[in-house]
């Protein structure tokens, strides 16, 4: 079977618009705004080109503020590129923050349906999804009927992650979100990701934990100040990166 390209970035550039912040009074702010200088562009990603084939497990490393999360957001279609082209193929499940989108006032069961719809899931599959999330989360029926505001953050994470896996994605995009939840749940998540990968699923993972990246990924992208500094086999790139950090 020929590997499909699930995700490709072609010379992608992205900037944030931020307030110039030089105005110290309302009058100056109005002046700046009138001259069109109230906002300035801060480039976050510059000329990013890479592609991800089906079955690949790619990690992203880099210092704080190097553009890792922005890259994931662009990959998911949460942010739109300023220049360049991003292509996506197949289903993509974002796991950028566990717990976002849950409505505290509604029950766990209602939240599963809400989150599944928000993640762009197929409405016809709701029943199956409900079943698999309930199973994955290991939460009792009593807990699932409770309002989510009475949940611990780990319990919320179980729901969120369960929904992401239930999307049955081709590509899983994970941002250090798994830091919440108890050790048992984290292990379960990583086990689920590993099983997902062994079934041919693809992974794009941001993490600061080098061992985690090394264990989960066979290819690593290293971002430095918005540019792709290295792209290659996990071990080699991680070594370069750690040398640069002085570790």
């Amino acid at each position: 079977m020929e590997a499909r390209t699930l995700l490709s970035f072609q010379d992608v550039q992205f900037s944030y618009l931020i307030p110039a912040g030089q105005a110290t009074s309302f009058k100056e702010a109005v002046h700046e705004a009138l001259r069109g200088r109230y906002f300035i562009k801060k480039p976050v990603l510059k000329g990013i080109t890479f592609s991800l084939q089906q079955g690949e497990r790619v990690g992203i490393v880099g210092r704080n503020g190097s553009g890792k999360t922005t890259l994931l957001r662009l990959a998911c279609g949460i942010a739109l590129p300023e220049h360049g082209l991003i292509r996506r193929l197949g289903t993509l499940a974002p796991v950028l923050s566990l717990g976002a989108g849950l409505e505290p006032e509604l029950s766990g069961l209602e939240n599963i349906l809400l989150l599944y719809a928000l993640a762009g899931g197929d409405p016809k599959m709701e029943k199956e999804v409900m079943h698999s999330v309930v199973e994955f989360s290991e939460l009792s029926e009593q807990v699932l009927k409770m309002q989510v505001k009475r949940y611990s953050s780990g319990m919320m994470a179980r729901l969120s992650f369960g929904v992401a896996m239930a999307l049955n994605p081709d590509l899983l995009v994970v941002d250090e979100a798994l830091a919440v939840g108890d050790a048992g749940f984290q292990q379960k998540c990583y086990a689920a990701i590993q099983e997902f990968c062994s079934m041919g699923g693809s992974l794009l993972l941001v993490s600061h934990a080098a061992e985690e990246v090394q264990r989960m990924c066979h290819r690593v992208l290293w971002l430095e100040e918005g540019e792709l500094k290295a792209d290659g086999p996990a071990l080699a790139v991680l070594k370069q990166y750690q040398n640069a950090l002085g570790l």
Binding site: C76, I78, L92, L96, S97
Partner: peptide, 8 residues
């Protein structure tokens, strides 16, 4: 939080 984490 939703707009930052899901492509909606």
């Amino acid at each position: 939080p939703l707009l930052r984490s899901y492509p909606i």
